[in-house]
C-alpha cells in the first residue's frame, strides 16, 4: 500500500490518533511525552503510530498534513495540532471536551 493511503486509512479508522516519537509508555521525545501525558489524562483510549519505526510515514505525513513537526494529534479525521496546541487546549479544558465527545461518538468495539 502507498504510504499516503496507509496514512489516510489510519486517520479514517482511528478517531483519536497520535503520531509520535516512541510509544506512550516509552516516548523518545519530550514533546511527544508531554502530548501523551495530556492525552492520557483525558481518560479515553487512543491509537498511536511511532514514526521512528515508520520512516515512510514520518517522511510523508508532514506534507499531507501541511504540518512540519511531530507529535501530531488527529481527531475525527482532522489535525488538531502539535504539542504546544495540545497542551494549551488541555490547560483550557478544551482537549478533555474534544476527546470525551469523540470517544462518545465512536464507542470502542475493541473491549
Amino acid at each position: 500500500m502507498e504510504t499516503i493511503d496507509k496514512i489516510k486509512e489510519q486517520i479514517a479508522e482511528n478517531p483519536i490518533l497520535l503520531y509520535m516519537k516512541g510509544s506512550p509508555k516509552l516516548p523518545s521525545c519530550g514533546f511527544s511525552s508531554q502530548a501523551t501525558q495530556a492525552l492520557m489524562s483525558c481518560g479515553e483510549q487512543f491509537a498511536y503510530v511511532d514514526i521512528l519505526q515508520n520512516p515512510d510515514i514520518r517522511a510523508e505525513l508532514p506534507k499531507y498534513a501541511n504540518w512540519p513537526t511531530f507529535p501530531q494529534l488527529w481527531v475525527d479525521g482532522e489535525l488538531v495540532g502539535g504539542c504546544d496546541i495540545i497542551l494549551e487546549m488541555f490547560q483550557q479544558g478544551e482537549l478533555q471536551e474534544l476527546i470525551k465527545e469523540t470517544a462518545a461518538k465512536y464507542p470502542s468495539d475493541a473491549e
Binding site: K21, G22, S28, E88
Partner: peptide, 13 residues
Amino acid sequence: VPASPNCLGGSKH
C-alpha cells in the same frame, strides 16, 4: 508561556 520539555533522546534516532 509554558516551559519546553527536556530531551528524551529522540534525535539520537
